[in-house]
Design a protein around this nucleic acid. Structure first.
Lengths: 121, 121
DNA sequence: TCTTGACTTCGAGTGCGCTCCAACTGAAAG
DNA sequence: CTTTCAGTTGGAGCGCACTCGAAGTCAAGA
């Protein structure tokens, strides 16, 4: 029962492609992943958790540039705790702003649909 | 009191650049805009309204491809009313799904921030 | 042993949505 | 009349986030 997995398994579990996983590593979004004797990546559960977090940051619109910055901070350990917290807070505020905007646009969309409704149903 | 405006004014009012406005026209997202005697675009209030709607569709993540499709339908008049309504409804559903996802990711983000909170404030 | 298939690296290519440049034109202010 | 300035066109270029191709390696199953 080896707890690590290949890039293929990892990709499937986090919903990214193997291409993207390797690219994330290359871009420094993920710390260098451990290798087996043949030089193949072995992802640990921790690696997986990190990737899942990354996918959430991506989905909420964080640019890769900022994710890299966050990864760098994380690799520097405890000293950057406050900075990482601040980064998350700024991001959360952007997400909240985005949701508010979305909410408003949605309202307009709904009005538009209502208007179409008059006269065809 | 001419009710029309130049590309520059229009751009400023809708929050897009003149480049983008011309590109939208070229891409068929906007019907050919009227010209003055010197061949310069003159945007009417209706043109403006259309552009505002487009910016909302864009902001809510509608691909340019779909906006073009919508513009084509709109230009074909009443016959496409139902199709346009359907297009809006599909889009609204996608926006709703997106907001739900965002909501969930936001929750995780907040948990993360709380964790950072422990031990540094 | 042979084949299959998932992995490796490196670099090139793709799709999207703009964004800008070059060369030019015309109207209006000084 | 000259300068300035906003506009015109066509086409090239850009930033982002992947995505893929080529050529090769390695381990495991038939």
């Amino acid at each position: 029962m080896d707890e690590t997995m290949t890039v293929g398994e990892a990709a499937e579990r986090v919903g990214l492609t193997t291409y993207t996983l390797r690219w994330y590593e290359q871009e420094g979004l993920v710390a260098p992943v451990g290798r087996d004797s043949a030089g193949r990546r072995r992802y640990t559960a921790e690696d997986l958790n990190w990737l899942v977090l990354l996918t959430r940051l991506r989905r909420t619109g964080m640019p890769v540039r900022d994710m890299r910055r966050y990864a760098e901070l994380a690799r520097q350990g405890e000293a950057t705790r406050a900075a990482r917290r601040a980064l998350f807070e700024r991001h959360r505020d952007r997400v909240l702003a985005r949701m508010a905007e979305l909410q408003e646009d949605l309202t307009v969309l709904n009005h538009k649909i209502e208007m179409y409704g008059k006269g065809d149903r």
